[in-house]
Design a protein around this nucleic acid. Structure first.
Lengths: 116, 116
DNA sequence: GTCGTAGTTCGATGTTCGTCGAACATCGAA
DNA sequence: TTCGATGTTCGACGAACATCGAACTACGAC
């Protein structure tokens, strides 16, 4: 599992190009999209989910686990998402607010455009 | 020089990921930035420049001509810019309006974020 | 402790990308 | 028509990337 704790960059150290690179890949854009539209758990308490989070294993994408882990790392290191570990599982969420302070409107605009 | 006429994609055929990929490279982001802030010629008539245009050879970047040509092609095929040929020279401009209709706010937001 | 679950890391593979110099194509001017 | 200027295209190169399976690690449960 996760090596103790993940490295989350200070949002002010993140470059725009890094964020754009992270988003410029179909699988990763899809992950971000999923977290945005359905980040919050559906009604009812679900296995320790916090607001805006999504469980790792519930991200069911047609790729290998190792590939998913790789993409999540790219997104994490680009400051796009946060990884919370609880016991042996982990939960993913977008760093919406911080990101919006660093790059105002960027994430929202991209997500809107992505909806067509 | 330019092979008669360049291929400019219909803006509706352009995918978001393609645009993001095009922007996710320092040199290309810089080119787009240059065209945005200084696309319009400075006061006075300049060798056939139209509004919002910039002459190819005035894009002085620390890269080989062939590399610049390559990047411009990527940007063109991503629907980001238009290439107008006049005689033996060509002029570059952003497809601001069309792009804004296809991906509302995207270009503006990215450029704003790029300014810090 | 032993076992299973949940993710991460490693190594390998094939692909894409940024970069260059050289060759080429197109046009205006002499 | 020959020359020079302006870009484009063509390999070629190394670096970066997406992908996978296998090995590994950390934790909870038994």
């Amino acid at each position: 599992m996760a090596p103790k704790a993940h490295r989350h960059p200070d949002i002010d150290d993140v470059e725009l190009v890094t964020v754009l690179s992270a988003l410029a890949e179909p699988t990763r854009l899809r992950i971000v999209h999923m977290l945005a539209v359905h980040g919050c758990s559906r009604d009812g308490a679900h296995g320790g989910l916090l607001e805006g989070e999504r469980a790792w294993k519930d991200l069911d994408l047609p790729i290998a686990q190792s590939t998913l882990s790789h993409h999540l790392r790219i997104l994490r290191e680009a400051g796009l998402l946060r990884n919370r570990t609880e016991g042996t599982r982990c939960f993913i969420s977008l760093r919406t607010d911080e990101l919006d302070e660093r790059f105002p409107g960027l994430l929202g605009t991209v997500l809107t455009c992505n909806d067509r």
